[in-house]
Design a protein around this nucleic acid. Sequence first.
DNA 1: TTGAAAGCGCTAACAT
DNA 2: ATGTTAGCGCTTTCAA
Lengths: 338, 338
Amino acid sequence: MKKRKKSAITIHDVAEAAGVSISTVSRVLNNKDDVAPETSNRVRAVIRKLGYTSNLAAKSMRSRRTNVIGMVMTDVGDPFSVQVLRGVDRAIVKHAYDLIVYTGGTRDKLYAERERRYVSLLAGSITDGVIVVAPTAPRFSTVSPVVVIDPNKANPDYPAVIAFNCDGAQEAMKYLTGLGHRRIGFIGGRPELQSAIQRLQGYQDGLTLAGIPFDPELVQVGDYSKETGYTCAQRLLNLTEPPTAIFAANDQSAFGAIQVAQEKGLRIPNDLSVVGFDNIPESAYSSPPLTTIDQFIAEMGTIAIEMLVKLIKGETLESNLHLIHTQLIVRSSCAFVQ
Amino acid sequence: MKKRKKSAITIHDVAEAAGVSISTVSRVLNNKDDVAPETSNRVRAVIRKLGYTSNLAAKSMRSRRTNVIGMVMTDVGDPFSVQVLRGVDRAIVKHAYDLIVYTGGTRDKLYAERERRYVSLLAGSITDGVIVVAPTAPRFSTVSPVVVIDPNKANPDYPAVIAFNCDGAQEAMKYLTGLGHRRIGFIGGRPELQSAIQRLQGYQDGLTLAGIPFDPELVQVGDYSKETGYTCAQRLLNLTEPPTAIFAANDQSAFGAIQVAQEKGLRIPNDLSVVGFDNIPESAYSSPPLTTIDQFIAEMGTIAIEMLVKLIKGETLESNLHLIHTQLIVRSSCAFVQ
DNA sequence: TTGAAAGCGCTAACAT
DNA sequence: ATGTTAGCGCTTTCAA
């Protein structure tokens, strides 16, 4: 008696049931045109009947081509990544690729290694290429293409999609100085990322434009997370001369700042104005139409896919760097906190 | 530009560089204890130096064990799925598993098939088990374990995690009737899901408790998406006797309804009250502390992982069904729309 | 038009 | 303690 292991249906089972060889089944699976229509139909029928799905692992191992694209990002709690993911999702359908996402969880000390590991894991085996959002690791060891979104200084080697943030940050500052604020705190993001550098630049430019001297005490650097937003805001508000407004480099940090304000009993925006960069998905409905960058961020994902697909197909890129000029982007948290 | 090798680094390269056989490298990779410490260290050093990561595909093909758990969900735009994902993320770290997510994109006609395909794809090859959020397909063909979250009527076969929603929906209704509303519209969710059934039940119970007769005209069924929320709300507000309040079965539908209201020039909550079930992540900061179900939803993910890991290890579950009793849960959109 | 057979990179049983 | 070897399920020559 044959020992029937409790295993999934394989190409063998299909071949046997259809009375053909496994190579014929494989040909049908890959839509080769040298299969007799009648055979092809019979095989297809069996595949359907058995509910057979080809084994991704085996497939990818044999033929360096899986039609799956991988994406590596931190937390799903990060609105930026989520928005990028949406754009990616949208674009991927058009290209008949499938998407596999690895979320590395919180950005702790070990994140860079997890990120690196996962890029290799995905790219080295089951995906044809990988998109990395706001990379932490300086470089990745992989032979298949990588496209980064919001790259850091250390890895300019990879094709990248980045947004131009200076204008937006300036606009945020204009908003705050327009309200009469002269003492404005800044909560920075991960200093190695292009976006963070530009936003800080916008903050400084904003001060200059308003004729306000730069006070380094008012700049606290976090990592785009709510947690560091919280601690940075604490430091700012515990200054002997605390700011009357806070400009956070991203929305997560802004949330952290808002939390501190609430705990301190400060009412927003009466006692403290808080403005966060980026945007909270869906919140657009909760206030008068403000400019949001949802669509710009999503577009970054879309463009990244376009680039990656070209690379996978072996085509060359016109440019290794794609800049998105956002019109901008500022979402005053006042609008939904009051 | 540096000339890249055509193929990735394999276990062979490591073995060669370390002067050992591939099986020894494999043993080191899998932390077997029958390797001389000295050899082990040498191999490890080479692995690090070469930046070697083992090929997931090959590994999983040979050993039916990958330490990767898969998750299949629709859109990342869906706050519910995202919240579940967070819980999963959190739990997975404890169990030293990795997570791969497949997002099937928008829920269109073809979604059920994509979902099915992806479950087989993941479960059949690269993952040890799969979690499916709000499944569309009635069943999946796979030998490895599947746990569903918020199952539909058609597939009670799989171990499931579900929340008990009746109370919450009733509470939402109590809120609206308490405001004096007598004509309350309901925007339902995907009618095959447990959650949708319970929320509708809660709506009806709420009417009964308030002594309001049930009017089928006021119930419009969508699919938990913003789009159907929009069209359902349109139908409701175009009635000859439109409702003065709308209770949406989930937050996405509520957003759709709010959009209709805005387009019609109805002010919320003055002209129309809108209450949505579930919760919008992060918005908790934007209003006085309301009860949210964020933590409950995330817990569903955590529990699903616990169940799945047990199944993967071959242990048996105490119960195939895990009920979460939410305390509840209602988030009045008035709180952040006014 | 189809089948047989050689691996892809890896693990595990069997040798040494 | 380490090496040799047989496949895992699949694609892809090469033969027929």
